[in-house]
């Protein structure tokens, strides 16, 4: 069981990191989700893996450590929120930059450097 469990975490992490290193936003978001799954599984296993153990203290078969489950719950909630936020940001970036490339579209950004490298003029920057 341990071997399968750790292999799962390892493969998920590897896929997650590979996807996160891509250039487009959607694969990056997917990679982040995979990475979050792997992290949650990893945290979960920190209470040691046992079959048939009870979740509550005082059962005959012995109980598992409840703390990792609590940590995982927190991590899952935060992970969901972050993924949702990044997804929205990616859609927004697609609209703002006209491309889903992480650095904006190449051609446009070069043109942009000539005119206004930061677009700090709020009268133009604030348009939506």
């Amino acid at each position: 069981m341990e071997a399968i469990f750790s292999a799962t975490i390892g493969i998920l992490t590897a896929c997650g990191i590979f996807m996160m290193l891509r250039g487009r936003t959607l694969p990056i978001v997917l990679g982040m989700s995979l990475m979050t799954f792997a992290t949650n599984l990893f945290l979960f296993s920190m209470g040691r893996l046992r079959i048939g153990a009870d979740g509550l203290v005082g059962s005959k078969l012995g109980s598992i450590d409840p703390v990792p489950s609590a940590l995982v719950l927190t991590a899952i909630v935060i992970g969901f929120a972050m993924t949702a936020f990044v997804m929205i940001l990616a859609i927004r970036a697609r609209a703002d930059l006209g491309s889903d490339h992480i650095n904006g579209s190449r051609r446009k950004s070069r043109h942009d450097h000539r005119s206004d490298p930061l677009e700090l003029d709020e009268s133009r920057g604030g348009k939506r």
Binding site: I78, D96, N103, P117, K127
Partner: peptide, 23 residues
């Protein structure tokens, strides 16, 4: 806050790096 292309671009990098760091 208050939007703009460059903020979205910088924000994207900032967010992704920090989410990875959180993992």
């Amino acid at each position: 806050h208050s939007g703009g292309r460059k903020r979205t671009l910088a924000g994207m990098h900032y967010v992704i790096l920090n989410v990875a760091a959180s993992s």
